[in-house]
Amino acid sequence: MAQSSPRRASALAWFGPVIALLVIVMIYPTIQLFRVSLSQTEFFDPVAFVGLENFRYVLSDPDFWAEARITAEFVAGSLSLALVFGVLTAVILQSLGGKAAAIFRTILLLPWTLSMTVVGCLWLWLLNPSYGPVRYLLSLAGYDTGLLLGDPDLAIWLIVGASAWWSFPYAMVLVTAALQSIPKELYEAVEIDGGSALAKFRFVTWPHIIPTLGSTALVLCIMYVTLVSLIVVMTGGGPLGETTTFSLAIYKETLNSIDIAPAAVISIIVLIANLVLGIGYSVLSARIKRSK
């Protein structure tokens, strides 16, 4: 049945500001982004329509594919470490229980509370190849650390370590919440059946935390894909461009280039990747809700 006019007006009055806000901060910039990607620009101003030329330029640029590889390495590496450490610490602290677990949990949460710039500066100092503690400690063990962040083959993995260190507490907190919602009776049932600790994890813990892990992974993925400041501080994208992810490339291109259209093209690719991840997150969240 059609809504009456007063109801329609009331709905418009309630939703109007939100819709206007969405148009201003999301729809318009997105349209502008597509417009820029199809143009040649002088700084922020599109000066000529060039069709799909910018897409051809970007996709034929070897740097783009190198950035794609580095982004994949960075996201996959950070995600794997953050999830593994998040689950491990959550399970260990859960089994520890009591005040000690609460204290450790609070301490372990600290990295997550730090700004990315602070995290970057901290790791830059730790990994300094001249006077950094990492180099010093490893040299005591007779190991030559080499250039660390200056090594093109190693730099991205060191950044992966730093980003995982920063983000694993997020996974730990969410997994802890999932663990606390598991009924104790299930563990008792496994015990009665003579199941080991591994069996408890395999048949009780894991099925209960997997949906949470999925949604955590998606959120972290989106964060890693868009992360810039940590890399800017630690390497600036070097050495030899081996730590330049998509987001860093967009940031640098927008700041340093006169024609920012290629950066707009990469932004669209990142946007699509994030959209896919966002849809995945929504679907997964809905599934978790239904299962509860």
Partner: peptide, 18 residues
């Protein structure tokens, strides 16, 4: 050890524009 005779800064750490 831990002393650079003459530094030639080729890097872009700590900022942009290598």
């Amino acid at each position: 050890d831990n002393l650079i005779g003459y530094a030639v800064p080729l890097g872009n750490s700590g900022g942009l524009g290598g």
